[in-house]
Design a protein around this nucleic acid. Structure first.
Lengths: 233, 233
DNA sequence: AGTATTTCTTAACTTAAGTGAACGAGTTCT
DNA sequence: AGAACTCGTTCACTTAAGTTAAGAAATACT
């Protein structure tokens, strides 16, 4: 178990929740930061995303901003630990987070969430201790909301409930397709597929984490990659 | 491709949708049929299930019943074909349905839905042609609803929207846990796990369908099973 | 800058899944 | 009843992933 805590001085939950409260407030510090690829602020990115589902009034947008849910999170930060109870959901505006289990002293990474992807850990839904860890693998900007907060705002604006329903249904459909694809293909096919569909992941994620994501050992992924290279030549 | 159509005289979509329209109406024919294990009617089973999420008034219950969505479906019926467009969702009151792909002339079964489980195929969400087949592997009683119908009733009773949201979120959480478990375990562990969690499936489902559900070939499942038997003795 | 740690690769060996084929038992069809 | 087909099992062989270990390359730490 030791190694989990050794690779870097882990900032714990308290670290990232207090961080936006420094000097400037969360909005000016985080929400106004511009994305590298274009000039949109984090707020713009969020509202553009939401606009695909429902159209918000200025009042509703302000309600969201006033929740103070924009957070800047450093690479390596653990957002959720195994055994912990939580009510927090995450939405990635910039960066990347991963979920992983620790089984037989080994980390098994099962999912990555990048720009415009949302994660509500199962433990939040079931209100039981978490079975896995969530951590940040790049300096990221996240929306962190808790279910009480959501219940309150959804009570005021039923529109949000509707949006959540549509998103949950879409995500469920996507998750099932991904699962089906995983079941019906070999490790090598899965890797080739990832190259097609999420080439960015292969660049930004360490290979030993990718390996468990593909359901194999790091050595096998390394071998598999060199096998593919041979075929090409 | 031939074999798909040869194992039995397939009843097509038209078959099952017209079936309840015979002699008696759908409600008396199907909804009043009692479950083997107890004396509850299909309607009772449905409303007990719904009661876990929201409480319905008599008016709302009547609205559901008057939709005429209870259907009796014969074993072997194909509910959805690859390439087909559809707006239909299924909820199993009794029996079992499966989803499968046809890849290289082989059926790959990826999921089973049994009593009190719901399936909205991804193609219904994305409004694109279906990538897989859905078929009935036992004589079953299903709720078959289409998205227009749902939109209409959800407009009248926002309560249903709320229920769907909760269900979708729960199902998403469950799907992710199942996927994670699949990724982090070997075929043998998956089989042992299935024995624990859904022993009924192993009884009621043919092994070659179980095999692809476990991500392996039928021969491997057979071998794996005898390996387990040896260990026990 | 130098050391320690982590990450990736390679290799030899073991184990298990994929493949192709054959067989018997049970179904379904005619 | 006989033919055709499905289904599960077994076997021999191939292929690929798991395991263990070692070393090189990259990264982080002081």
């Amino acid at each position: 178990m030791k190694f989990i805590f050794t690779h870097k001085p882990l900032s714990w939950l308290t670290d990232y929740t207090t961080q936006p409260a420094t000097a400037q407030n969360a909005e000016t510090l985080v929400a106004s930061v511009t994305n590298d690829s274009n000039n949109k602020t984090m707020k713009d990115l969020l509202f553009d995303f939401i606009a695909k589902y429902v159209s918000l009034t200025e009042e509703e947008k302000n309600a969201i901003v006033s929740l103070d849910i924009f957070h800047s999170v450093k690479k390596g930060t653990t957002l959720l630990k195994e055994g912990q109870q939580s009510k927090e959901s995450y939405f990635v505006l910039k960066g990347c987070i991963r979920t992983y289990y620790v089984i037989d002293e080994e980390e098994k990474t099962t999912a990555f969430y990048t720009e415009m992807e949302a994660l509500t850990p199962p433990c939040v839904i079931s209100q039981t201790p978490s079975e896995y860890y969530v951590s940040c693998i790049e300096d990221s900007i996240l929306l962190v909301s808790n279910s009480d907060m959501e219940a309150e705002i959804n009570g005021k604006f039923p529109k949000f409930d509707k949006m959540c329903k549509i998103m949950a249904e879409e995500l469920l459909a996507k998750e099932r397709m991904d699962f089906d694809e995983f079941k019906t293909s070999s490790p090598e096919q899965r890797y080739q597929n990832l190259l097609q569909k999420r080439p960015d992941l292969i660049q930004r994620v360490p290979q030993h984490q990718l390996a468990s994501y593909l359901g194999i050992k790091p050595q096998s992924l390394s071998r598999l990659r060199s096998r593919i290279l041979e075929k090409k030549s």
